[in-house]
Amino acid sequence: MDNTGLLTIGVFARRSWLSPRALRLYEQQGLLVPAVVDERTGYRWYRPAQLETARLVARLRRLDMPLARIAEVVAANEEDPQRAVTLLDAYWTDEEYRVAARRELVGHLRIRMLGEDGSLDMHSVQVREVPQQTVLTQHRHVRVQDLPAWIDASIARLLKAAAGHGDGMVGPCFIIYHGEVNEESDGPVEICLPVEPDPHRALEAAVRVEPAHREAYTRITKAQVAFPQILSAFDAVRAWTEREEIVASGSPREVYFADFANAAPQDLVCDVALPI
């Protein structure tokens, strides 16, 4: 066995800032496969050229990036560094959203521990008039753990149906909660997509008219949309109506007026509203 020019696992570990244990794990994951493995002793040797990949893996791990995503970045970096950077940016965007969402969760927990009145300090509530709207709609009983996937799939279906109807979607999509949605309760939930009324055109979705109404609402960021911190916004709106002695006339809802997928965690994207 000719190991000329190869590095032992100990030397390679020191130069790559990785432990021999980590190197064996990354070998199992297909991230860093030794150049030579002695079948009798199991001893491993690496090529010096593998140091660059090893150091990239070490740095990505310091970002707490999962091994599956590291493998994707490493593979892309060997063929197209720009795509690898795009994957890195996408991961960091996800991380920033998770951190922002957790920060909002801390705020929500503080409110819950200090009492309901604290929610009014965190959210400014306003009132507006909402005109009558024709909407494509979809209902379902769904628990909170399944809600995001169902919302994404349902909006995609409604957008497809709206695409062949006049100008398509003509107003913000909104989600109505006709009942409690949490780990135990399943709504039901209704997704509504505003379109121009056209009695002569058949649509591949249920259609109804959402009556004109007034509503109290508070505007929240993308990070605040995550469950359960979004409950602080619902609590704030309901607490405001109770304080003002205003009676709710419909079910609470989320109104998405911005591009949620491409928004930053601190961007305003949604109104939590209650018809009054």
Rank of each mutant, 00 (worst) to 15 (best):
N3M: 08
T4H: 09
A13L: 03
R14F: 04
Q29L: 12
L31E: 10
L32G: 09
R40D: 02
Y43K: 09
A49F: 00
L51C: 04
E52S: 08
T53H: 06
A58L: 06
R59I: 07
R61K: 13
R61H: 02
R62M: 10
R69I: 13
I70F: 10
E72C: 07
N77T: 07
P81E: 14
P81A: 15
Q82W: 07
R83L: 09
A84K: 12
V85R: 15
T93L: 03
R102V: 05
R112Y: 01
R112W: 05
G118Q: 08
L120E: 03
D121S: 08
D121L: 07
M122W: 11
S124Q: 13
V125F: 04
V127W: 15
R128F: 01
V130R: 09
T134V: 10
L136H: 03
Q138A: 15
H141Q: 09
R143V: 01
R157N: 02
A162T: 00
G164T: 10
P172L: 05
I175T: 07
Y177A: 11
S185R: 13
V189W: 05
E190R: 12
V195T: 06
A202C: 02
E204T: 11
A205K: 14
V207D: 03
V209E: 14
E210I: 04
P211N: 14
H213R: 04
E215C: 02
K222L: 07
A223C: 01
E244H: 10
E245C: 02
I246V: 15
A261N: 03
A263D: 09
D267M: 02
C270R: 12
D271G: 04
V272S: 10
P275D: 14
